[in-house]
Design a protein around this nucleic acid. Structure first.
Lengths: 159, 159
DNA sequence: CTGTGGTCGTTGACTGAGCAACCATTATCC
DNA sequence: GGATAATGGTTGCTCAGTCAACGACCACAG
């Protein structure tokens, strides 16, 4: 074997490795912590919460299964089952779309809308405690910018 | 019920929400993409790769199950099974600790050490393509700093 | 020594998540 | 208008991951 510089695999710098493994491991730890609080207080997982959050902040007040999957980054099949669980809790329900019978609009129920402030309170305090509170406002801004870029469709590589 | 500002739950700003959901969703998407490449090329998941990575970069050349779990942020039971899988592939093996029979030192085998450069090449190019390549060097540095802070034991909140 | 308590790793049962196959419905094209 | 393709959602299977229970082992008190 020997000369490692032939195909010259550009080794990761310390910052690059920290960024990669940091994102991986921080997310895992953060989800675990926030999940525990949401679960204890409201029987909701992080994914379920994000579904509710997306619904609450949607223009039309409803999103399809596919739209939710794209927003929350989980597969449609998972969304379907998450919605099952949340509708069993009475937080959301499926409403047939009157222009396309394939589509299920997921909407927040009255009970869901009533429970929302409480859920958001739990969520926000958990996120502040485990995440935002450990960063400076500048870092939060930087992180938001970074994540917006990573979330963008693609390209945009040019600085 | 009404006046939302009574208990004044500090609503998340746009940046705060983007940071939180961004970290959640970006990690999921990134792991999915890099996992696919590692799996196709070397039958390794991201977790397996990180285990190998940690072993390769360890001072002593070996880590216990518990140390690996702490480093990779997965439970000891999962580490145990991941090591099972990797040792079935011949990449690592368990070596009894001669001073404490409870501990299994996990070490890279010769075959593992030989396969490493290839694996790292796949890994690095995938990470550059999906992650590092979409950020500026400055952003990578910022992200690394943020993740180091989030990964720190706790406290350190003071700017 | 010997028992007692804590630690390390493994196993079993269960949840969260994805993929592939499927069904229903819509859209397209002749 | 009817066959065919494409889309949206649900279901079955499998994997990744956790938690709780267990067994093996060390450490320490007596």
């Amino acid at each position: 074997m020997a000369s490692a510089s032939v195909t010259a695999p550009p080794r990761l710098s310390v910052d690059e490795a920290d960024a990669w493994f940091g994102v991986l491991n921080a997310q895992t730890a953060l989800v675990r912590a926030v999940d525990a609080e949401l679960l204890a207080a409201h029987r909701l997982s992080c994914s379920s919460h994000e579904v509710l959050y997306r619904l609450a902040h949607s223009e039309e007040g409803h999103l399809s299964i596919g739209e939710l999957g794209a927003a929350v980054v989980i597969s449609p099949s998972r969304v379907s089952r998450v919605v099952d669980g949340m509708s069993a809790l009475g937080l959301v329900e499926r409403v047939a779309c009157d222009t396309d019978a394939r589509i299920s609009h997921v909407v927040i129920t009255d009970a869901g809308r009533e429970a929302l402030p409480d859920i958001e309170r739990t969520f926000q305090s958990a996120v502040r405690e485990h995440f935002l509170g450990r960063l400076t406002p500048t870092q939060v801004r930087q992180l938001a910018a970074i994540m917006r870029r990573l979330g963008a469709p693609a390209a945009e590589c040019a600085s």
